[in-house]
Each structure stands twice: as structure tokens, then as C-alpha cells.
Design a protein around this nucleic acid. Structure first.
Length: 172
DNA sequence: GGAGTGATGACA
DNA sequence: GTCATCACTCCA
């Protein structure tokens, strides 16, 4: 199956996020072993106006990655323990990203990155086979009624933005 | 319900 | 420099 092109990610985050459901997240280690997981849960973070988005604080050393054009990984550490895996979307200078919260049998963004050995060394790297972490077509077509939309998790501080239905899940 | 953990941003 | 906060998970 083909690797999703940078083109795919250079679109509005609310368009890209639901389309990632059902696609394959692929991790390849230096020893050649690969892990391929179907993406089951994502969240969208959309620009400086989105108070739940890190870029609501503006351009900083950390958020710079989100200001790049789509198709690169945004990885950061929360709570001193867990790396979060995000895919940057949209055009350059518009900060937006999709958080991958679940894939395969793994529920929870922290468990996902631990299992796939994803850390900050992948931050700002392209989604590509040369990086060892990428997203590719699965051939699965997800009908719209199999997608569940809910508010995002863990962003209660974001006022009215906490209530936006920016979380997308595959119905089981 | 509450702790662990350390990078990050705000403020001085 | 200090301090509070955090896109989480596990254990009670």
C-alpha cells in the first residue's frame, strides 16, 4: 500500500483528521522489524485561535513544528513520562496537527508511543519510510456512519474550545 | 481518588 | 532564577 504523500496532509486539519481513521500507522525499526496498526482514534488541534492547541500561546521553540507545512511529525513530552504523537497538517505558518490517540489494539496516546518507541527524536521529521515512521493507505473505506465524533480528552481548561467535537473514533 | 514525572511557558 | 501547569497512565 502506498505511503500517504505530503500533499494529503497539506489540507485543513478537520478534513485530514477523520480521513486518517482506518489508515495504517507503520513503524520500522533499524533491525528491520515492522509494526503496522490501523488508526482508530484521533483528535484535531486547529490554529492559534484554538485554546486547546499548544500554538494558542504563539510560536515558541516547542510549537515551531506545528507552523511547518503538513506531513511531518510533532512529538512532545507530557507529565514528564509520555510522548504524544501528532501529524502536522495544513500550509506553512498555520499551526495545526492531528493527535493520534489510538491504533490497533492500543488505546491511549501514551501507551501507543511507548509501544512504538516514539520519542522526541522524531519531532519535525517527515512521515516517510526513511524516517521509520509513516502512514499508508490500508484499502479500508470507512463509511461516514462508522465515525464517532466527541469532544477532546484532557482539555477542560480550553473554555468553549473544550466542547468542540474535534475527536474522531472508529465505531467498533 | 491521587501520585509520579520533567519539559515548558510565565513571570521576576 | 522560581513556580504552576500539563493533549497521561496506573494503582487504590
Amino acid at each position: 500500500m502506498s505511503v500517504l504523500s505530503q500533499h494529503f496532509f497539506e489540507r485543513p486539519v478537520l478534513t485530514v483528521a477523520p480521513e486518517l481513521l482506518g489508515k495504517h500507522l507503520v513503524r520500522e525499526f533499524p533491525d528491520g522489524t515492522t509494526i503496522k496498526l490501523q488508526i482508530t482514534e484521533v483528535e484535531a488541534y486547529d490554529g492559534e485561535k484554538d485554546l486547546a492547541c499548544h500554538a494558542s500561546k504563539g510560536r515558541t521553540a516547542r510549537t515551531q513544528t506545528m507552523y511547518e507545512s503538513g506531513g511531518i511529525w510533532y512529538v512532545y513530552l507530557v507529565y514528564g513520562m509520555y510522548h504524544m504523537l501528532n501529524m502536522v497538517t495544513g500550509d506553512a505558518d498555520y499551526p495545526a496537527a492531528v493527535l493520534i490517540r489510538g491504533a490497533g489494539e492500543l488505546n491511549g496516546p501514551g501507551k501507543l508511543t511507548k509501544h512504538l518507541k516514539v520519542d522526541k527524536s522524531l519531532n519535525a521529521r517527515a512521515s516517510a519510510t526513511s524516517t521509520g515512521l509513516w502512514i499508508e493507505e490500508s484499502g479500508v473505506v470507512v463509511p461516514e456512519h462508522h465515525i464517532i465524533r466527541t469532544p477532546r480528552i484532557g482539555v477542560d481548561y480550553a473554555g468553549e474550545w473544550a466542547a468542540k467535537p474535534y475527536r474522531f473514533m472508529l465505531a467498533s
